[in-house]
Amino acid sequence: MAFLEVKDLKVHYPIRGGILNTVQDHVKAVDGVNLSIESGKTYGLVGESGSGKTTIGKTIIGLEKATSGKIFYEGENVTNKARSRKKKYANYNKDVQMIFQDATSSMNPKKRIIDVMAEPMHNYFDYTPGETKRRVAELLEIVGMNAEAMYKYPHEFSGGQRQRIGVARAVASDPKLIIADEPTSALDLSVQAQVLNFMRRIQKEYGLSYLFISHDLGVVQHMSDDIAIMHRGRFVEQGSKEAIYKNPQHIYTKRLLSAIPDMDPTTRKAHKVERQRVEAEYDAQETEYYDPNGRVYDLQRYDNDHLVALKPEEPNASLQNEKVKTGGES
């Protein structure tokens, strides 16, 4: 059963301009997406820069306002309620946490790690100072760090250590969902490996769910159970990891997957031929996969565990196309 549901979420940012600084238009950063999050699972959210991934995460956590659509937490409508102090939203605030590409950007540089980590604990639990200290040490240990680290300041750590502290802090409120926005994108390969391993260990230990946001398809494949591919504020394809990677249906997904560098230099030529074939197919068929305004179609069920945004099949589809074409030319 899903404990968090996102229904037809839209986040449109106003673009202001002109002499009077009036709203001239909107960026449809997120334009109608649905998500159901079950406990203990990892949901990968992939797409190129600007596709709307971060906006989804921030809106779920309440850092951006939903323009329309709803977010339900354990059945309660919590849309735009993250700042609310009302008791009925307390669980949602505690249970959903987010970490960013640079975890320490959200930490006060003048505070020691123990104070940084104690903050969420004090907000949600009545720990004594002794309990707080023990809990901080415990969390640091889980991400492979020494208890002494709690007396240092954020800048005294390397990038990989800071991301691990970020994960530890997100875990401090004992959440059910962590939204991780490009948590390893700034890290070297070997350091990334360490952070990803710890994230998976913590998940097993606490039964956490992740919404794992990344532009890196390899990392997402490694981490996720389910995946959504995002383009222009909408999902072009959504489903199990196997469905997306082994049987992609949308031309945009195919294009993205074929562009991942192949780690085997001996198949380089074949890989390049395939990539360029898909690229040509994309150029030729793009209009088939997007509506006349370039908008991604609504998702349709393709298989049990697989949704694809395909052109709706209508009996008079060809007729409609005619209309659109002539309309465009006149």
């Binding site: 490996a193 360490q194 890196d216 390899g218 490694h222 990677y245």
Partner: peptide, 15 residues
């Protein structure tokens, strides 16, 4: 340490 498709629960990346 390149992320790969997991081969079971305990599969971890090399650190």
């Amino acid at each position: 340490s390149i992320p790969h498709e997991l081969e079971g629960e305990d599969d971890e990346l090399h650190v």
